[in-house]
Design a protein around this nucleic acid. Sequence first.
DNA 1: CTTGTTATG
DNA 2: CATACCAAG
Lengths: 263, 263
Amino acid sequence: MRVITLNANGIRAAARKGLYPWLARQRADFVCLQETRAQEYQLADRCFRPRPFHCFYHDAEKKGYSGVAIYSRHRPDRVVHGLGWPGFDAEGRWLEVQVGRLNIISLYLPSGTSSESRQQVKFEVLERLLPYLKSLRRKRREYIICGDWNMAHKPIDLKNWRSNQKNSGFLPEERAWLDRLFDEAGYVDGHRVADPRPEVYTWWSNRGRAWEKNVGWRIDYQIITPGLRERVRRARVYTARRFSDHAPLIMDYDWPLPDGRGC
Amino acid sequence: MRVITLNANGIRAAARKGLYPWLARQRADFVCLQETRAQEYQLADRCFRPRPFHCFYHDAEKKGYSGVAIYSRHRPDRVVHGLGWPGFDAEGRWLEVQVGRLNIISLYLPSGTSSESRQQVKFEVLERLLPYLKSLRRKRREYIICGDWNMAHKPIDLKNWRSNQKNSGFLPEERAWLDRLFDEAGYVDGHRVADPRPEVYTWWSNRGRAWEKNVGWRIDYQIITPGLRERVRRARVYTARRFSDHAPLIMDYDWPLPDGRGC
DNA sequence: CTTGTTATG
DNA sequence: CATACCAAG
């Protein structure tokens, strides 16, 4: 089973850069996108419903802003839009499909870089999210929470960790939250299970020559329940081409899915 | 003496398309630009003060909107910003330099295409402008009023005149105003003096394939006082390259200027 | 369709 | 710096 997550930074821009022909060659079972930055009526072009996937979008109410999507090769038993938290849901940040015992989520956590008030929003979401994620652990289900978490965990997860300790995305409070996600709630960073190497990032600022110099951050994850830890086969970040300021994180799992019947 | 007029549709965009290297090769004495769409503080780059010209800008108060400029090889005796009409002047639509007995003006008449209320503004400007232009005729001076007049005069001046008789830019009232400008106020369409050919246009819509099909309008003029009629040597529209949705109108006059000393 | 604006990341 | 938006032409 192959799961791809990508912050598209505008699904229409990513499409212009060849995302969809590339996707068609990846044999993915699930594709989780974040920052679609479009409302579904703006995605009338057929390319935005790639075959053979079942395609789901959860848009922000504000035009051109945020929004997540999931493409699922397998018809989901259920699709969940949002978490029932009004402000968060209005920003199109959580979409979930259930296929058998497995739940796949596309999550786009708020960025705190634009203002102090947005950092407060990010903290409020985190505060509410941890208990919710803990509560999921009581179910007899496995979860793969794909997304742009907008936080790097450890010094190995970004190029310049020293100079970023006061910047949103690598604040001590954010790193401590990720500690709790792993140590207390028991989740696992799927990518790290398969790939312990440094200097593997998923996002590079557009400013300066961050990409050319690999001045990046690893802020896109596939966070998994522990029952999937032993099933991680492979993780890689696709950097041969650029569709966005983020790179796709492609993960393969040993998981018995029904045969993929297209839509 | 060479005078060039061009609606630049954003002087910064025109610069990216090579306007300034091209200008340097034209040996112009005066360059009149319209729709600079910039405020002077945004034109810090030295390219926007091309040598050896004396450069003058008259910006709109609204950012990114309207604005006119004149580059004069000869140090003007006087530079006039606006006509003293508050609403009109706030939109940066009139700039005038005086060199000896000659006045050169860069004029950008309002467009009426965006709304009925803007068409009313255009009519109000026209109503006020004609008496003003008539009053200039009482002076012992010659005038070259360069600009985007946003009106075609006769069927020969646009490709599809029949279908445009109800469209702003070829309304009967606008055409009648131009009749009065010529017949009553005595001004002369300099371009037409030198070039009677049809299908010579200065503006092509960006929509459709207007440029490729030469579906254009002649709405940029050098309007001259009758004393200059016999001094028109040549008029041509430069279409070998595109700097804007308008093309430069280049005119040569027999006029005794002092030797051009650069700034 | 294109320019330049603005908000957001 | 890039992707959206919007106003204007």
